[in-house]
């Protein structure tokens, strides 16, 4: 009897102690970043900061952007829709982060010390292994275009890419593609001719590819594709050899963050050496820091694919992609070009 009491007492005190000692601070993160991809990072954060209770909300870029402009404001906003993130910062919705980690962050990957690009995700082309049995797999944008033109019949319905209207990332990638070469529109027209399937996220494209529905996926997020390919040997991930876009997830602390202290702690963790080590070692997101060691670092990617990586610059030019008229004009042209070769 006495033993039982002692036992329960011990149990109770063991349960109560952390609750009393650590008043839990909630931290609301609105993120367009798959929870399972980023899980190791979140776990490490919870371990080193048990006093902060993470409320991680994994949503689409569109929904994240909507939440950022709505009350109650989240604490941290993470999204891969770079122009939208930049637009929210330009609207004054972010607050600056003053810390050593923020100061040490590379200048090309931050803006106003308010928003930080913390991943380095190459944009890749993914094709099924059986494609190689029929034709030479494309390694460049031009090769893909030639393939689409020459194998139009065989590839009909087998091509997938982002929908520029339903995905903020896809729209940004196409805008950036169009900036680099006017021949991009030929590619769009060629894809249109094969009755391209437009998906709203990388995972859907990967699913379709694995199912055998699609043979070639264009402009997929390398981070997701590489991870998927590890367990799906039928898929080959190709980093284009002429140029490869690089997308950076951008994170900022909301101006009206209800828990600014916890938000700063999280961002400092994310940008600090510990968070970046986890990103480089246990997520396929690629750390941009040069002094971080791991399988997924920007430096290692450069070593593997050479100097043809073109990160989408984090600067005011991103705002152009968010301009309503420019967007309308771009989508109008997209719709025109994608139908232009239809029989």
């Amino acid at each position: 009897m006495i033993r039982f009491r002692l036992h329960t007492l011990f149990l109770f005190s063991g349960l109560l102690l952390p609750c009393i000692a650590l008043a839990q601070t909630p931290l609301v993160i609105e993120a367009a970043l798959d929870r399972q991809v980023v899980a190791p990072l979140l776990e490490a954060f919870t371990r080193s900061h048990p006093e902060i209770e993470l409320d991680y909300r994994d949503r689409s870029t569109l929904e994240v952007d909507r939440q950022a402009q709505r009350a109650p404001a989240p604490d941290v906003v993470i999204s891969s829709a770079m122009p939208w993130q930049m637009a929210r910062v330009n609207d004054g919705l972010a607050q600056p982060l003053e810390s050593k980690q923020a100061r040490d962050w590379p200048a090309w990957a931050k803006w106003r010390d308010e928003v930080f690009g913390f991943t380095f995700e190459p944009i890749v082309t993914v094709y099924r292994l059986e494609l190689a049995r029929h034709m030479l797999p494309p390694t460049t944008h031009a090769a893909l275009y030639r393939l689409l033109v020459t194998q139009k019949k065989r590839l009909h319905g087998r091509i997938t890419t982002y929908s520029p209207t339903r995905s903020g990332v896809g729209y940004t990638l196409f805008q950036q593609d169009a900036r680099y070469s006017p021949r991009f529109w030929d590619l769009v027209a060629a894809m249109g001719a094969t009755d391209v399937a437009l998906e709203s996220n990388t995972q859907d494209m990967l699913d379709g590819l694995s199912d055998g529905k699609y043979w070639i996926g264009y402009n997929l997020l390398g981070s997701y594709a590489l991870r998927w390919a590890q367990t799906h040997p039928e898929l080959i991930v190709q980093v284009p050899k002429d140029y490869a876009l690089v997308m950076m997830r951008m994170a900022f602390i909301h101006r009206d963050a209800p828990h600014p202290g916890a938000a700063k702690t999280f961002l400092n963790f994310l940008l600090g050496s510990e968070g970046q080590r986890i990103i480089a070692g246990r997520t396929p997101l690629f750390s941009i820091l040069a002094d971080v060691v791991g399988p997924y670092t920007a430096q290692r990617l450069r070593d593997q694919v050479g100097e043809r990586l073109y990160p989408i610059p984090i600067d005011a030019s991103l705002l152009a992609f968010d301009d309503a008229q420019r967007r309308d004009a771009f989508l109008a042209r997209w719709n025109r070009e994608i139908r232009i070769l239809e029989p």
Binding site: N90, R179, D315, A316, S317, L319, A320
Partner: peptide, 25 residues
């Protein structure tokens, strides 16, 4: 009036001091 805002305009507006930029046509 149709205007495809050049990305350079934003960079000029933001200057090297990374200002917040405002524009309207």
């Amino acid at each position: 009036p149709v205007v495809e805002i050049p990305a350079a305009a934003f960079q000029i507006l933001a200057t090297n001091q990374q200002e917040r930029v405002f524009y309207a046509v």
